[in-house]
Every structure is written in C-alpha cells, then in structure tokens.
Design a binder for these strands. Sequence first.
DNA 1: GCGCAGAGTTCCAATATTCGGAACGCAGTT
DNA 2: AACTGCGTTCCGAATATTGGAACTCTGCGC
Lengths: 257, 257
Amino acid sequence: MKTNRETGTLGKLVDVLDAVARAEHPSRFTDLLETLGQPRGTLHRHLSHLLEEGLLEVDNEGRYRLGLRLLEIASLSWSKNDLRAVCSPHLNRLQHETGETVHLGVLRETSVIYLDKVEGRQSVRMYSQIGNGSPAYCTGVGKAALSLVSDDLLPALLSKMEFHRFTRSTLDAASLLAEIKSIRERGYAFDMEEHEQGIRCIAAPIDARGSGFLGAVSITGPAYRLTIEAMEAWKDMICSTAKAVEKDIRLRLGPGR
Amino acid sequence: MKTNRETGTLGKLVDVLDAVARAEHPSRFTDLLETLGQPRGTLHRHLSHLLEEGLLEVDNEGRYRLGLRLLEIASLSWSKNDLRAVCSPHLNRLQHETGETVHLGVLRETSVIYLDKVEGRQSVRMYSQIGNGSPAYCTGVGKAALSLVSDDLLPALLSKMEFHRFTRSTLDAASLLAEIKSIRERGYAFDMEEHEQGIRCIAAPIDARGSGFLGAVSITGPAYRLTIEAMEAWKDMICSTAKAVEKDIRLRLGPGR
DNA sequence: GCGCAGAGTTCCAATATTCGGAACGCAGTT
DNA sequence: AACTGCGTTCCGAATATTGGAACTCTGCGC
C-alpha cells in the first residue's frame, strides 16, 4: 500500500486525505490507522494538522470527513478553468439544440473528470457529477479523449487500466484498441450502454494539448431516445462544436498573455 | 504575511495552494515568490511536490493553476456531505413551489459556503456557486446562520469581520447585531439587496450543531419578484422547511451508527 | 469495585526532510 | 559580449517528522 512518490511529507498527507475521501463511511482514527499503515503518533499529527488547516473535519464522535475548505478551493479551481469557460456557451447551445444532457470532460491518467454539465429539460436523473472521475474506457468522453493520445503513449496508458465489466457492452482491453482506431477514423465516439445499462452517448474529442488537456464534449441520454438515427443526426453538430471549441482555445491562448 | 499556524510543512504548502487559488491570473514562479515570501529553493520544491501530487498544474509557459485532483477530491467531499444529502429533496420542493432559486449554505468562520443550489427555470444544476464563499454579514444565509451563534461566541466572530459596503443597504458592524437579534425573534432573515443590487433573499436557519454545522436555506430572486408580500407569503414555507431538515438530521444522526 | 481491552493522546531521542543562501543555467536584450 | 530576468540545482545547517513506548480515558464484563 506504500505508493512510492518523491513528495515527502505532502505525499503522506495526501494519502490521508485520499483515504478519508474514498472511505465508504466517515473514518475513525483506528480505521485510518489500519488503512494507511502509518504509525499511531504520525497519523495523529497528520490528522491534527489537516484539521487545523480545515482540510478535514471531525465530529464529536471522532469521525473524520473532508473539510469544507476543500470545496472552497476547488470551487475556485473550477471557476477559473479556461477550458470550462470557453466551452460553456457551446455546451448550452448543444443542450438547447438537442434537448439532451451535455457533458464536458477531460482525461486525467486513465479516468475522465467531468468539468461541466448542462442537464436536459426532460432529465432522467443520471449519476454524473462535476469533478467526478469515471473510467475512460467505457465512457463516450473517455474514449473520444483517448483517441487523441499518441500511439507511443497509448500502450502505457492502457496497461494501467483495470477493465471492469459494467454492462454486457463494456469493452475489454483487446477491443478498446480497435475501438480507438475507428474513433480516430470517424472523428467521434459512441458509448453504447457500456458504462450504464440504458444510457448511451455520442462524444467528440477536443484537442487542447496546448493548454494541457485532452477532453471531449458529449451528448448523453436514454437508449430509447439516442437511437442510431438520432446519433447519426447529431454527429455533425457535436463534431463541429468540438472544432469550434478548439478554435476558441487557440484564439484565447494565442494572444492572451 | 507569515500566518502563524502550527501546521509545519502543511501550512506552507496550503499557503501556496491558496496563493494560486486566489490569484487573479494563473501565477508564474516569480509572482508566487513575491506573494508568499518563501525563499526560491523552498518554493521551487513546494511547487514540484504539489505538481507531482496533481494539486497544481503548470502549462508550457510556466503558469501555475489549481489541479484537477482538487476537483476530484472536493467532488467526493460534496457528494458525501450529510447535510447536503438530507437537504436535497427539501431544496427541490422549495424550488418547485416558489419557482425561484434555492440555496443551502453553512457558516464557516465569518463566511458562508454554499453547499447546494437549485436554480429556477430550466433546473440547470450548476456547480458555479457551490463551494463559493461569501461574507456572512450581507447574505440571507449568512445572517440566518449567524442568528444561531450563541451570545458568548458572537462578539469574537463579529470582530473578525471586515465590513465592506457592497450596496446602499449593506449593513455595518453596529446594525448587524441589532439585525441578528430581530432575526432571532422572527425566526428568519431577509437580504434586502445587501450584497448585490437588485437581488433579494429570504432565509431560515438550520441548526445542525449536532453534526457540526450552522447553516440556512434561502430563496433568492430579483427584487421585482421578491416583493415584501411575496416574501411574507413564503416565510412559513421556508421556516417549516428548515424545521423539517433539522428533524431529518436528528433522525439520521440518532440511530445512524 | 476491579481490572482489562480498546481507542486516542502525549512524549522524546533519532533521523530524515526541509530550509534557504548561493551558485549555476539559459533565454532574450542592449 | 555583457547584462538582466527567470527558473533550477546544490548542499551544509536547521528543523520538522518519525515512530516506539508510555500514558490517559473510556466503557465493559466479571
């Protein structure tokens, strides 16, 4: 369980945050002791420091939760995200023209992090949230973004993935590579209920390498509305949206100091 | 600029995060050097560690931004927040019955942090405000929450506030205390365009001391719709919502392990 | 009431990290 | 070629972290 990074104290502190974040229930001291394998004294000091900085909170029964300070900082991170800001009007337009839920996500290692979302009017409640990480290999946004990864980096990335079979249609390691090739040819990606049964999606990649991101926009909805025909009808719209975003990014990054 | 906390290394690292978060534009090495007053070598190491952990990102022009990792962690923090979860259905109902935007916020020191928001109109759930901190003394949610603070803690809290006059109606230190007293009597708070010209709000306090929070729900909207009459008509609804939330919290906290 | 077990806190000498001044590299300028 | 702004690397000294162990405080069972 010892991740070997060269980040000294910070690494261990982040480990603590992570353990608290991932835990199913609010963690008690002893739970963390076991999860992290840090010595008692050390863990205790880590916890008090994190508490004092507001990154963690503890209730009167000694259960640790993530602190509000994190929300506060992350909210700033979100509001200042360039890619998100550039995409915002495009997402709204896409939502308006299709009536379905529209997402913006970026690739981070082997998962997708959703940066923004505009919900459809007729919103069937789907679980997807801003900041949420989902596996790249079984989401439209993820596969579209993966299609931008260059061939020399791809194998390393794929080898880091753990392929869990969420539905009957979830791809495995072998078929993913083929899928990526065909996404490159088509220029857009489908998610045919590969992550969640009954939920489909069509996504187009956004190459924002210049600003350090590979991402995608997607249109998501229930399978009975996102028929093959509907998706065919929208493919040009979503691809041109992605292109428009890429252009906006170049414009903003070029002159903008 | 040396904040004297006893959090050793962590304190300095958080300072760096904070500096990057607060900066108007993405910061360069030298900017941070000046803002933080840390020695070159030290700052350099701090930055590389934060980079390696994904808490910061740097573009090819050496400008630092907050990393996505923060969004990811904060999203977990948000989704697991008990108060938020308990309130969610109540907020939806309130939004539905009034048609206006509904907020949930909690008090953190002298500011309010918004935990959730249900927007009027297309029920687009935006992250925008969530996590955002606003001053407590000039927002409905803030003043309602302040009304729950006990008299012996209040002076210390008030003395930490900086009263900035956002609009003609923004309260100052003197009037805030009187206002808090009358909120206690009434049981709910108004924001009569005290933070933003043309925006009003009515809020009811939520006492979740048991789980460590003081908060409030609010209904926000333009002054021309939130007339005195409209707010009068909603006061019972919002107060009973707050009471219902408090009851739900007790239920959930009591038996809940 | 007594003692035991579990959970959390405090202590402190040994050690590994951090600190921070100074020197170095590397553009782009004059 | 010398200069200046910007960032990186180095290394002895200073300091924070480490982690074992002892201590406290419950609550529980006998």
